[in-house]
Design a protein around this nucleic acid. Structure first.
Lengths: 235, 235
DNA sequence: AGACCTGGTTTTGTATACAATTATGCGCTG
DNA sequence: CAGCGCATAATTGTATACAAAACCAGGTCT
């Protein structure tokens, strides 16, 4: 390999696949890698100076999360959730997140409130800024807020579920979103945080439910790609 | 779709690793492999005549489901969920399953009802019979009923979440259960199915919530193993 | 022209080899 | 006889080799 000497800063074993998985995860969630992109094992391995063995482990992990699709003998690619799956993602979020908000309201501390408001500030900053990098930061901050609320609720299993749902949501929005209701969403985020801060769990849960409705309402479940051709011919 | 029972489980990599994963999954869920059991790659490979490569993929998949724990450089073992994790499992089920029952009631067909009643019959049969094999069948049937209700609700993502939660529940019950409230549970299963069959979603959801409460009430969250020694010394 | 074979190329699936790490057993010492 | 090192065995982490499958391009036949 390219490392004849043992000067590696972090030679931690077992962390290599996790590193690659996280990098790919971030790249997919903030849309540097868009749905449908082929993920060739050799390329990724070359990029991260790792063997296919560890790359495969990383891809498998992402496949479990549903954001990468593995087709036998055909390799991995960034998932393209169907409209049906997209609906299921938001149904699942509607089922989980209001309850999570309710639980969070019962356990939230002053430090938690400060952290959430920090997230809001970061998000506002990203929204105000221009450029694709700011868009990525916005997506990241928005997801982070939802995940932070889940973390406050204190259930790691549900947090993990939500992590998957948030990641899949990003793919769904990339495919079916019609731009710009983000500012609306940010305002809703503020209200949710306010409700949580005042300990009003019921209100937070209700706001969260509406928030998810609004996000989904901004989508246009027209199948992308080949189906759009078919639809165009019909019109 | 008003799908039958067919819920495709989890993304499959090859077919080989999936086979091993499913076999191990079943073995863990119906307690032929108990919490803490070491899972050595070579042994499993020899058992299934497969190389360590595929075995590792299978173990990784099970680790992602939370029923196998992977410690770096130390290998895999059947998970021993802590009382804390156990509580989180049931909290998560309380958050998901009543809503799933509600959704199922709105979509259930006559064929679905017949299938659920078939499950009830199988379960009753297993309960009546003696021996460890019957116990395994009982556990299996009980889990299958919950998963079938999820399948009727028609959300594959939530079905997968519940699949994980049911599997983890089996580990939790193996560790902290104090035997025999199963018959009680079966009765509750019958009532839930009846509510679903009559289209009474609210009732089904409420019954489901209580059912989960009852399952958890039968647990004794005393840490097994070393902690019990400590407790014994204190008494 | 279009469908269809066909060879070479790419990419994945699986096994295996070797290095790194952890577990184990045994003799030694006090 | 308990405790401690140290050599050795087991086991995991990672890279690589090779076979099978899919992909691609060009040429042939109808």
């Amino acid at each position: 390999m390219s490392t004849p000497t043992r000067t590696e800063p972090i030679p931690r074993t077992g962390t290599r696949a996790g590193e690659i998985r996280d990098q790919l995860h971030d790249a997919i969630v903030d849309r540097r890698l868009t749905p449908g992109t082929k993920l060739v094992e050799d390329e990724i391995g070359a990029t991260f100076s790792a063997s296919r063995t560890v790359v495969r482990a990383a891809l498998q992990a992402l496949a479990f999360d549903g954001i990468v699709t593995l087709e036998p003998n055909r390799g991995a690619s960034v998932s393209k959730p169907s409209p049906e799956v997209a609906r299921q993602v938001f149904d699942a979020r509607r089922m989980i997140e209001p309850g999570l908000a309710l639980a969070a309201a019962a356990r939230i501390t002053a430090a938690d409130v400060a952290m959430l408001e920090q997230h809001l500030a970061t998000e506002a900053e990203a929204i105000a800024a221009r450029g694709p990098s700011a868009r990525r930061a916005e997506i990241h901050a928005s997801g982070e807020l939802h995940l932070s609320i889940a973390a406050i609720a204190g259930n790691e299993i549900l947090s993990r579920f939500l992590r998957e749902l948030v990641a899949r949501s990003s793919l769904v929005i990339a495919l079916y979103g019609r731009s710009g209701a983000s500012s609306c969403a940010r305002d809703e985020h503020g209200r949710i945080v306010a409700a949580l801060a005042s300990g009003n769990g019921r209100a937070a849960a209700e706001l969260m439910r509406h928030h998810i409705d609004h996000i989904e309402a901004d989508l246009d479940y027209q199948p992308a790609g080949e189906a759009s051709i078919r639809d165009l011919l019909k019109l």
